[in-house]
Amino acid sequence: MVISTEHLTYTYSAGTPFEKVAVRDVSLTIGGGEMVGVIGHTGSGKSTLIQHLNGLLKPTSGRVLLDGKDIWAAGPDIRQVRFHVGLVFQYPEYQLFEETVYKDIAFGPKNMGLDDKEIDKRVHEAAEFAGFPTDLLDKSPFELSGGQKRRAAIAGVIAMEPDILILDEPAAGLDPRGRNKILQQIREYHAFTGNTVLLVSHSMEDVANFADKILVMNNAEVFAYDTVERVFARSEELKKIRLSVPQVTNVFHRLAADGLPVPENVYTVPYAKKKLLRLLGKGGRSDA
């Protein structure tokens, strides 16, 4: 499913002294099956933007299109859009409310009006995708650890089987191992289902590791929306808006500046390791 925006603008508290443009004239298209990283400072408009994509916010002006159709033109049932575009909020564990994890994950599918058999299937599949241990499904969500709660909440959105999954900082506040596990799980979900995934993150490393394309938001506007290579190639501009490139990219830029024959398009640690080993191996041979 292709989702796109046309000149999307959103203004908070219009007409009061607190008026603020949160998103200004954003036009972009996210193709089916893409994995897009969304980056920007706090207040850059990324959270506001993603809430437009599933119709939680109505644009002040401009349109949001799902497969070319304006989501607000369809009529009153905006809920259908929300079943196609799943949104996992920041700290989603605070939305858990049911007696058991199972019931909580089933909340979304139930709202879709599915039958019990289908719901049961989806709950189990979603729990697996989110890495939630299925033997804990009958526990109360409030007895779980922080990481497990997070997974349960993410499963609650995946269970609706949305064509487009948006996650707002899914790894925020978790320890490094929990972070990696959750991000790994999301990558597997993407690879397995082939659905579009939008991942909002503060961490350049995470985005470089997981995304095909990067959307950089700055001051309510799109600063860049392109492939990982092309966005990080603009590292000087990124620094100007106080965003960085991954640390390992910085290291390689410095090495290149010192005259070493290393490529500048290095964004992930495994790739960096490979390049460095080759360089060292080469160096060793020429010394011999």
């Binding site: 809430q51 599933n54 939680l56 809920r79 929300r82 079943f83 799943g86 949104l87 996992v88 909020f89 989603p92 605070y94 939305q95 909340f107 979304g108 709202n111 879709m112 609650g156 959105v157 609706m160």
Partner: peptide, 13 residues
């Protein structure tokens, strides 16, 4: 507001 949005995102009516 945030909780309402989160539940609406899961299709709460």
């Amino acid at each position: 507001d945030k909780i309402m949005s989160a539940q609406k995102a899961r299709g709460a009516d």
